[in-house]
Design a protein around this nucleic acid. Structure first.
Length: 424
RNA sequence: GGAGAGGUGGCAGAGUGGUCGAAUGCGGCGGUUUGCUAAACCGUUGUACUGGGGUAAACCCGGUACCGGGGGUUCGAAUCCCCCCCUCUCCGCCA
């Protein structure tokens, strides 16, 4: 959410943001409505002030005086409730508009309509040239008995999977490797609730707008998280932190649940796009300062890159264009890892900064050295998401004999094993 | 799932219809005292919105709202009524 005052004073900046992000919000209506409500509120305050002042006389009056005053105040009281009703009638529309206004994208966000117009910033590592016909991760997973999507479909429907044997162990290994890297980098590891309330979903700006992508509990109130960003970012919601606590670095570990509505027929093979996966997510809460945000954005991007380098995987970093940016982000860098079966790079990480967009919704604040209360800035990025990361891991590290070499950094987490070979 | 208790300021904890944004204690901040520290004493200390003064800052003076959330009664609600959420205790069930 943006500061209503900012919207009021900079309607053109907001309209530009809508254009750049291809998001349709009636900014003029919002400003008009805001003005109307402010007028009503001002009148209402005057009425309430009078009401309060005169009510104070009540205890000192005689019985007759009380009766007379009571009759007078009844008139005032009716006017007050009239104004309150008028406000209440307008509130839902204003709130709806306010929640839908997008954050202002940074100037360095490229123009563009969708992910085809994202701008590549750098490539790291060279895609491997195979001297044999490489298998894709489904063939590898099946022949090595690491993965079973057919039986998963039987009991859980499409976009499901079982990980087996070294496949299961490899997932835990890569997650734990990633988490350990973050802990060593000063992040607090967090295992989080997977079911959260609507406040957390709205606060992190997944709602409204993301209803189609998130699983909602119907018998009970609650939503299944699509990422631990939700509970981790909301962890300090409603609090006023001390500036000396910032930045707060947290690494959330959770399963993630996504409906993938509207993606029928897209990425159906294998474990690229699935309903449930495991992810370690990095979140930073920092001061309300654009430069500081930028600095930590680079930091969290760096953590992801370091991890991919240690996993010996080629990747590229793209600057996500306006049309592919979400409503809440100021800027987003995607990291895409080389996947031989796609003969291309596939998104494995997404690093965003939000300025105070989420913090404002969450009531996430801090008191600075001058005693001023300010909204924090929030940022987040994937550390590792599995099993998607198993795709490049298996495919890039496969050998001619059908085995897969375990990259060195994961071996301590795989009981020292160097290879995954055929069974039996 | 059943029965009961409770949710008040950073924390603890009073307050059962008006003079309560809210006693008191702790903590925080400023000061006095002190060779230094501690102690003691004095003062100060919520958030948001809003009107005015001031240089759009600092700051000053007013107003409104907020005592888990929402609704109701009333001239007036932290206080009474209804609904919801959360926490705790006991019982049941289960890992």
């Amino acid at each position: 959410m943006l500061d209503p005052k900012f919207i009021r004073e900079n309607p053109d900046v907001v309209k530009d943001a809508c254009r750049k992000k291809r998001i349709d919000v009636d900014v003029d209506r919002l400003v008009a409505l805001d003005g109307e409500m402010r007028d009503i509120r001002r009148k209402l305050e005057t009425l309430k002030a009078e009401q309060n002042a005169r009510s104070k006389q009540m205890p000192s009056l005689s019985a007759e005086g009380k009766a007379a005053l009571r009759a007078e105040l009844k008139v005032l009281s009716d006017q007050v409730s009239e104004g309150q009703n008028a406000l209440k009638a307008l509130e839902p529309e204003l709130e709806g508009l306010l929640l839908r206004v997008p954050n202002i994208p940074a100037p360095e966000v490229p123009d563009g309509k969708d992910d085809t117009e994202n701008v590549e910033l750098r490539k790291v590592g060279t895609p491997r040239v195979f001297e044999f016909t490489p298998k894709d991760h489904v063939e590898l997973g099946t022949s090595l008995d690491l993965l079973d999507t057919e039986r998963a479909a039987k009991i859980a429907g499409s976009r499901s999977y079982f990980l087996k044997n070294e496949g299961a162990l490899l997932e835990l290994a890569v997650l734990r490797f990633a988490l350990d890297h973050m802990v060593a980098s000063g992040f607090t590891p967090m295992i989080v609730p997977h079911i959260v309330n609507e406040d957390a979903m709205r606060g992190t700006a997944y709602l409204p707008g993301g209803e189609e992508q998130a699983y909602q509990l119907t018998r009970d109130d609650g939503w299944l998280i699509g990422t631990s960003e939700v509970p981790v970012t909301a962890y300090h919601s409603g609090e006023i932190l001390n500036a000396s606590q910032l930045p707060i670095r947290m690494a959330g570990w959770s399963s993630c649940y996504r409906r993938e509505a509207g993606t029928y027929g897209k990425d159906t093979r294998g474990i690229y796009r699935i309903h449930q996966f495991m992810k370690v997510e990095q979140v930073i809460l920092c001061r309300n300062d654009a430069e500081e945000s930028r600095k930590y954005h680079a930091e969290i991007l760096g953590h992801a890159e370091t991890i991919l380098q240690k996993l010996e995987l080629p990747y590229r970093v793209v600057n996500v264009c306006g049309g592919d940016l979400g409503r809440p982000q100021v800027q987003k860098f995607d990291v895409e890892t080389w996947m031989p079966s796609r003969n291309g790079y596939g998104e494995t990480h997404s690093a965003s900064r939000f300025h105070d967009f989420q913090a404002r919704r969450l009531g996430l604040r801090y008191r600075d050295e001058n005693g001023d209360v300010k909204f924090c800035h929030t940022l987040n990025n994937t550390v590792i998401a599995s099993p998607r990361i198993l795709i490049p891991l298996l495919e890039n590290h496969q050998n001619a004999d059908g085995s897969v070499t375990i990259p060195e950094c994961l071996r301590p987490y795989m009981n020292g094993r160097t290879k995954i070979g055929p069974k039996g």
